[in-house]
Every structure is written in C-alpha cells, then in structure tokens.
Write a protein that binds this DNA or RNA. Structure first.
Ligand SMILES: [Mn+2]
Ligand SMILES: [Mn+2]
Ligand SMILES: [Zn+2]
Ligand SMILES: [Zn+2]
Lengths: 159, 159
DNA sequence: CTCACAGTTTAGAACGGTTCTAATGCGTTG
DNA sequence: CAACGCATTAGAACCGTTCTAAACTGTGAG
C-alpha cells in the first residue's frame, strides 16, 4: 500500500478540519496508537475519549464528568460507552480507579506511584507525588494475604 | 420518683428475661446511658442497635450487615431506621464512617486514631492501631484548605 | 474493494445501596 | 395520664452503575 492510498484511507471518516487541523490529527493519531498498543480497537468513541483523557497533564474524572466533557466538545458518546471505556482503559493499565467517595467512582490518568488530596467540598482530587509521601509501620497482613496496594487520602476542607 | 417506681418504669417494656437476664439488663442499661449521654433518646431500636455495636470489641458494619444481625437476634428494626441510627451515631461521635468501597458505606465503632487493612475479596476491615502506622511527607494543603484527616487503606488480597 | 464476522455502541431497563415521604408510633415532660 | 415532638416505618424515589439485546462498525480475508 502506497503513501497516497494510506492517507486517503486514514482521512476517510474525518470531519472537515479547522485551524488546528494538525493538532487534532496528532492528537487522534497518538490516541489511536495508544489504543492499538493496549490491544483496543481505535473506535471513534475511544479515540475521542482517549484524546480528552491523555492530551495534557494527569487528570481525575468521573464517568459523568467525562461524559459531560465529551458532549461539550460536540461529540455524542453514550454514558454506557463512557463506563465501558473507563473500565477497558483501567483493565489495560491506562487508568486506575481511586476510591474516595462512597457513591462515586473516580478514574485517574496517573497510573504511577502517588497519593491524593481530596477536597471534600468540591469532590476534587489533587496528586501528591509518591516521592513526597511515605507510609511506615504497616503491620504484616493477615495470614494468607498479600498487600495489593496502600492508598493514602488526605481529606481537606475549606479552612 | 422513688427507687421502686423507677425500677418498675425501667422494666415496663422488657421481654421476659432468660438465663442471661443480668447481662441483658446491664447491656441495655449501658446502651441507654451511652445514648442519653450523646443526647439521643433511648428508643427500643437505638438501644438494641447500640447493644450490638458497642458490647464487645471494635466493629466494622454496613447498614445491611447490621440490619441482618439485628433481625437474626429476633428484633424487628426497619432498614431506614438502621440508616438513620448509623448517621445519628456518627453525628454524635459514637461511630465514624470508613470509605474503602465505591458502592458501600462502612461504619466503625473505633473512633480513635487508627487505619485499616481492607480484605478486598471479603469486604472486611481490620484495624491497624494508630501507634503502629505513620504517614510522613504530606505536602501542605492547597491554599485556604485544612487537613480534615488522613486515611490509610492497606488493600490486601489472597496471596 | 467487498464481505462477513467479531467486537463495539447504544437506548433503555434493571439493579442495589441509600435517601425521602408522610403517616403512625412512642418517649418525655408536666 | 395527656399532649407534644421526636422517632420509626413501608414503600417510593433516587442515582450512580451495570445489564440487555439489537444496531453498527472496524478489521482482515478473499
Ligand atoms: Mn460523598
Ligand atoms: Mn467494590
Ligand atoms: Zn492521581
Ligand atoms: Zn476501624
């Protein structure tokens, strides 16, 4: 397959490009690559969501916040697909889940070693780098159990 | 009100007592005292639930587990009342809430400084005394925020 | 390029833990 | 004991999440 042919194929399902055509293409291309690498088919919806999640800095989202955000961007993705995608990305190691609220699930694009501030008033998470924080004196787990991970949540409120 | 009158009044709503009559009376009396001290009316339901929660060692319950347990004991208390009571006890400082699962609320009779193992397979909590465990290197919270508390959850799984 | 298939998306229903409603019950005080 | 106000309750509502099953689409074979 020659270069002209490939370009044609790649562009087939694209909307007309505006001023940030190059940016968009790079973003989509990177999202697509990331998805393929994780063994996930780069569908329109997954590329769109990956674009939002992984473009800039680390992010903490809920299904609903991401659903709102993708709608805001003028793209229609069902809430079920947002849930599916968040779980698939988590399974693929692209996201991790953070449990800080008894009634809402947060997903974190930072899968490295770190902990969190949780702003209880706003339901917002802020990363604490793993190098900064340390937990010591953890007793050995009950017999037959192995530590899966140690989560620290620093709950903060308006002073 | 004289002593005879008071004893009469205290016994009014009691079931017939079995072999552990004294134990039961002490338990109910202690629960009642604890409730009054917390500014809560000692209703039949609250006394019953307090009796289960505070009789022995520290406990970790969910609304449903406590509801099952009180039913097991042959006492009928509605699930709504269990929820109300857990929240009232928490408000009164008799319990604290522990957030380890995105879809279930745990309540802890140990309100002192401590942390938890969470057995993910069984949904079970085990205390880690506060003296044993330490968190260091917590950055100062965002401007205008104050640390409410620092929670450590050591998630363990079958080895 | 087309086709067929397996994987994906979707609307809407179902689910499960929790909260709400408003009617009934009961602990307290006088 | 009466009367008041808080507490309890059944059942409905709520809401985040998961399920269902039908329509759709990315992919690789031909
Ligand atoms: Mn909350
Ligand atoms: Mn869970
Ligand atoms: Zn994070
Ligand atoms: Zn505990």
């Amino acid at each position: 397959m020659g270069p002209a042919r490939q370009a044609n194929h790649t562009d087939r399902n694209k909307r007309p490009m505006g001023k940030d055509a190059t940016e968009s293409r790079d973003l989509a291309a990177m999202a697509t690559a990331r998805l393929r690498h994780a063994g996930l088919r780069p569908t329109r919806q997954r590329v769109e969501l990956a674009g939002l999640l992984f473009q800039d800095c680390d992010r903490h989202v809920t299904a609903e916040s991401l659903h709102d955000e993708v709608a805001q961007a003028g793209v229609k993705v069902s809430l079920a697909t947002v849930y599916n995608t968040l779980h698939q990305f988590t399974g693929a190691g692209l996201l991790r889940q953070v449990i800080v609220d008894a009634s809402r699930s947060y997903f974190d694009t930072n899968t490295g070693d770190h902990q969190h501030f949780f702003l209880e008033d706003e339901g917002m998470l802020i990363d604490i780098p793993g190098e900064h924080i340390a937990v010591s004196g953890v007793p050995s787990p009950p017999a037959g159990m192995a530590v899966d991970r140690v989560d620290v949540v620093v709950r903060v409120k308006r002073a």
